[in-house]
Design a protein around this nucleic acid. Structure first.
Lengths: 152, 152
DNA sequence: GGACATTCAATTGCGAACAATTAAATGTGA
DNA sequence: TCACATTTAATTGTTCGCAATTGAATGTCC
């Protein structure tokens, strides 16, 4: 069994882009952890806050579409954010099926405290902004192609 | 506030490489799911099997180092693989602290059934092999730089 | 208007992921 | 040899992530 072939063996762990993505996601999470601990947020909670800092008072479904998460994940997460006094959940009056998520004053205020986070991540990446942007665009394009396949 | 600046705002969700990686990992997982369901495996279980198909009879720690996972994740996962008769867990006689993980005949046999998986993923990626390899190498390099920072 | 389907959030159950701790085995230095 | 640190898995508790189901509100079609 020639050694060279292993570099092409699609069944080898090191040749799989998916494992690269999977393990990179975990590495990011470990870098974010100490930064987000200071804000009292987990990474998925931070993502929800990023969405809300861009636009407030949106139904759960909108958050789910932006983050690719469903109510099974978001409902308990949002309840925890509410328990932390960062958001408020209220049934929409126009459509009683929807629950609207709004930031509290503390939720708004947290945006400033979170401003340093992206810079710290950039530093940890040890990479130029333009390189990161190029990688991000490639990964997003791949993600979108994968998501397109899921609906068959 | 000029609209153009949003493309540079590091606090915007769409500008974050980490979210790109995070959401791509989930997209991969959703593509893998129906393929792995046929094998009776989850994606992390599939990763463990990939490691074992390369080398058998290794301690839990070795698997953890390759996959960047700790015993808190692996111990219950390996017990599930053992319950599915794919691996066998035995205390090492040379070092009683270690638990060695070996494939059962069924575990070995599953490798053949899993051969089609990477091809299906490649097709779903809708992308050339060389492009995927280049992306994979970039992502691995980024992951390794991030992991280097974690030890401080 | 009324039967029917659809939409939205919540719930349940299971499998990761990880921090923190525990317990046992092994290694090290005096 | 004995005290002590280190290594290795296992355990506990919390939070994701998702499939599947439920129940209420809304839309649609006849």
């Amino acid at each position: 069994m020639p050694r060279k072939l292993s570099a092409l063996d699609p069944q080898r762990l090191d040749n799989q882009i998916c494992f690269a993505v999977y393990s990179a996601a975990h590495a990011f999470n470990r870098v974010y952890k100490p930064l987000l601990d200071r804000l009292g947020l987990t990474y998925p909670q931070y993502l929800v806050m990023l969405v809300l800092w861009e636009r407030d008072d949106v139904p759960v479904k909108d958050i789910g579409e932006k983050l690719f998460l469903d109510s099974g994940t978001l409902t308990p997460l949002l309840k925890r954010l509410e328990a932390a006094h960062l958001v408020k959940r209220t049934r929409s009056r126009e459509d009683e099926r929807q629950v609207l998520i709004a930031l509290t004053p503390q939720g708004h205020a947290l945006k400033d405290k979170a401003r340093a986070v992206p810079q710290s991540i950039l530093a940890a990446s040890d990479c130029s902004v333009s390189e990161l942007v190029a990688m991000k665009d490639e990964i997003v394009a791949l993600r979108d192609r994968l998501n397109a396949v899921i609906g068959e």
